[in-house]
Amino acid sequence: MTDTAIEMIGVNKWFGDFHVLKDIDLTVGAGERVVVCGPSGSGKSTVVRCINRLEAHQQGTIRVDGIELTDDPKSVAAIRSEVGMVFQQFNLFPHLTVLQNLMLGPVKARGLSRAEAEARARKYLDRVKIPEQADKRPGQLSGGQQQRVAIARSLCMEPKVMLFDEPTSALDPEMISEVLDVMVELALEGMTMVVVTHEMGFARKVADQMVFMDAGEIVETGPPAQFFEAPRSERCSKFLSQILSH
């Protein structure tokens, strides 16, 4: 792996006439944890979704692990196989058991045998601390458990980068910490992570770099200490005072 995991240079994107990303420049080093925050509609989810091509950017360059993201399906597939993604709505496959959810990717995309895939699936279920739920269906689990399964499902592909798109926003308050704990452990193990979240406690604990977005622009970046104590822009300090005040 190169020293730079993700590189975005002058990325622009429009939804119709709406300019959703404006000249985004962002570099994420290997092993680095970046937390992206900002008001709703600021484009933070779109940034993350561009990195694994769930959205296509129209201008600029995105490189993941040295591979440039282009319209070529091969580059898209190559990048997706290195990038794990955790969604706000979990998006587990409801017709499969937890174990089957975890084994599908390794068996179909990585070509592992069923036994290897099951061993790997059980290993990551242990990591997210729900080995006993292996044979249940997603619908039988709590939101927090479902999100941990979703994290384990991504880890089973052994990605180099993990993207989190508001992973705790759909959870009941008492379940947020069980998901964040898993994410903190992952961060401590050195996983490269880009996390869109409003959980500022988590951000202080693990982030190497904070990114504040508003209206499609990156307004401010910096290490958490400086970011939280002395935000340079007014928009950022206003946003922080709003979400930290309660």
């Binding site: 997706r80 196989s81 990038v83 993604m85 496959f93 599908l104 179909k108 995309a109 499902r153 592909m157």
Partner: peptide, 14 residues
């Protein structure tokens, strides 16, 4: 079927 299902399947289905 919600769009999220195929999005979640992107890295998993070849």
């Amino acid at each position: 079927i919600a769009r999220g299902q195929s999005e979640a399947a992107q890295p998993i289905g070849r």
